[in-house]
């Protein structure tokens, strides 16, 4: 028998219904472990996760979690998340109402002589060059997750690329409101 394919999480075959939860948490040790542990033990899928100290108040952090609402009803995910004592507030932005941005950094190994196509890609993606030397170029793109996907795909043609993405953060579009729980 051939061994089964390793499970890699969300695949092309998994219908993904993403929701963006903006979760205000107390800035205490272990908070992220509590959230990650909850998602793991309840079988909720995290698609991406971004954490940073919350605006204006060092007591709190904001965690932006993109959840796969196919893995469990959103109501369950929010209800269980809200029971974590360190979770202070949860808002849900539906993808169509969300203004989403993500940061991508990539270092591409390429000689000075062979950079024309790379420069084309960078220009058309609206990315910026943030570091450069004789052997490599580092580019940055702050854009929608879709545009970051596009740049990532375009860079696949290069043999030596180190690429990192932050996971997205989001706010409701002007005139739209997030659903507060």
């Amino acid at each position: 028998m051939t061994p089964p394919e390793p499970y890699l999480g969300i695949t092309d075959h998994t219908p993904v219904r993403l929701h963006i939860l903006s979760v205000l948490v107390e800035n205490k040790a272990g908070v992220l472990a509590r959230i990650a542990g909850l998602f793991a033990r309840r079988g909720f899928n995290i698609y991406s996760l971004a954490v940073a100290p919350a605006e204006s108040n060092a007591r709190f952090s904001r965690v932006t979690i993109v959840v796969d609402a196919e893995s469990a009803p959103l109501e369950q995910i929010v209800g269980q998340l809200d029971k974590l004592v360190n979770v202070v507030a949860i808002t849900d932005i539906s993808p169509k109402d969300a203004l989403e941005r993500e940061l991508l950094l990539a270092t591409i190994k390429t000689d000075v002589d062979n950079r024309t196509s790379l420069l084309d890609i960078i220009a058309s993606a609206g990315a910026a060059i943030v570091d450069v030397d004789a052997k490599s170029v580092t580019v940055m793109l702050a854009a929608t997750p879709g545009n970051c996907d596009g740049l990532e795909k375009a860079l696949e043609g290069f043999s030596d690329v180190e690429l990192h993405r932050t996971g997205r953060v989001a706010l409701p579009r002007l005139g739209k409101t997030a659903h507060a729980y």
């Binding site: 209800g79 269980q80 029971k83």
Partner: peptide, 8 residues
């Protein structure tokens, strides 16, 4: 009292 029980 626990709303996470609803529709679970």
């Amino acid at each position: 009292i626990d709303r996470a029980e609803f529709n679970k």
